[in-house]
Amino acid sequence: MSWIERLGLSVPLVQAPMAGVSTPALAAAVCNAGALGSIGVGATDAAGARAMIAAVRESTRSAFNVNLFVHTPPVADPVLEAAWLAWLAPSFAAFGAAPPQTLRSPYTSFADDPAMLDMLLHTRPPVVSFHFGLPAAPVVTALKQAGILLLATATSLDEARMAQAAGMDAIVAQGIEAGGHRGVFDPRGPDDALGTLALVRLLVRQCACPVIAAGGIMDGAGIAAALDLGAIAAQLGTAFIPCPESAADAAYRQALAGPGAFHTRLTRLVSGRPARCLANRFTALAEQAPPTPPDYPIAYDAGKALNAAAKARGEHGFGAQWAGQGAPLARAMPAAELVATLNREIHEARTPAL
């Protein structure tokens, strides 16, 4: 039985687990339309994740995906953090605010969160996926023994081989075009920045695990192309941001529909890890010779504080407006309608012209 058949999917599509954007309502709507809906719980604790899982299950009986961050725990560096806050101080001052005196780490890595593991083993979501790295072998074993299918993001062949060796059931091949955080295991190491097309084909040829294509795909023609390259499905994130079920605020939606969608930027400024977002006032700070940001997610603490100060004065250009390079192709419609549209486009793209 194939991975798609095991999950009962009728559409070879995964809605990306965008933490803070992909709500239980969005995931459930996608699931009920025949694709794999996802929630991202890397920005909450075990209790919050449990509530999100329960909310999904209240609205669907279909399989869904729960995504976790497995980043290397940050190393606090008071000197580096002070320099970062000093560099951001003028931006805070522009909105009549002062930067925080100290920074904290707002997100706990799944690698250091036994309560999250206990919750997953108790609730047993059908699919669990990992971003930024892989959990320890005993954790993988425990989840698989609970009957949970496991996915992991890979941005290179080396990462994909590690994911396969760790026992992942499928690999999400994240191309450089993708919106949001790069899934690189080591953000300070070299990054070949492979595009989705090249990465998918490379992993299909070199790995035994099924491959899910991710990055810059926005319509059924793109999904069909990924399938033709050997992927079993495609993961789309930016395409679902305009859906009414997403948690994107009005400013985010407006920016995605504006000229900034044609100019995404890969930046570390927001969180300390490379991530692709819409060009805005935050990304423009790169022109001011920034110092080395603190480790992820400590740097995110400063980014969130600056965004809050700016929003309090009516400025929305400092938000984490994640988006992939296909952003101009985004379409605003309910999630179920989008899935149906994508499925129709897949069949149209793969049906030979008479």
Results as ranks from 00 to 15, higher is better:
151 L>F: 15
151 L>W: 11
153 T>A: 05
155 T>V: 15
156 S>R: 12
159 E>R: 12
160 A>M: 09
161 R>W: 02
161 R>G: 08
161 R>T: 06
161 R>F: 00
161 R>V: 00
161 R>P: 13
163 A>W: 04
164 Q>A: 14
164 Q>P: 08
165 A>H: 13
166 A>N: 11
167 G>P: 09
167 G>K: 08
168 M>E: 13
169 D>A: 08
169 D>S: 11
170 A>K: 08
170 A>C: 08
171 I>N: 08
172 V>N: 05
173 A>L: 11
177 E>Y: 07
177 E>N: 05
177 E>P: 13
178 A>W: 04
179 G>W: 00
180 G>K: 10
180 G>Q: 06
180 G>A: 06
180 G>R: 10
181 H>G: 01
183 G>I: 03
185 F>Y: 15
185 F>E: 02
186 D>H: 11
186 D>K: 12
186 D>Y: 05
187 P>H: 09
187 P>C: 06
187 P>S: 03
188 R>M: 08
189 G>S: 10
189 G>I: 07
189 G>K: 10
190 P>L: 11
190 P>G: 07
190 P>C: 02
191 D>Q: 12
191 D>C: 12
192 D>I: 14
192 D>L: 15
193 A>W: 12
194 L>V: 14
195 G>P: 12
196 T>H: 05
196 T>F: 03
197 L>F: 14
197 L>C: 07
198 A>Y: 12
199 L>M: 09
200 V>W: 09
203 L>P: 04
203 L>R: 01
204 V>W: 00
206 Q>V: 06
209 C>R: 12
209 C>H: 12
210 P>F: 09
210 P>C: 10
210 P>D: 09
210 P>M: 10
211 V>A: 07
211 V>I: 15
211 V>Y: 01
211 V>S: 03
211 V>L: 07
213 A>G: 00
213 A>Y: 00
215 G>C: 06
216 G>K: 07
216 G>M: 04
217 I>C: 00
219 D>C: 01
219 D>A: 03
220 G>R: 06
220 G>P: 03
221 A>P: 01
221 A>N: 15
221 A>D: 13
222 G>H: 04
223 I>Q: 05
225 A>E: 10
226 A>E: 02
227 L>F: 06
227 L>V: 04
228 D>E: 15
228 D>C: 13
228 D>S: 15
228 D>V: 02
228 D>G: 10
229 L>W: 04
229 L>Q: 03
230 G>T: 02
231 A>E: 02
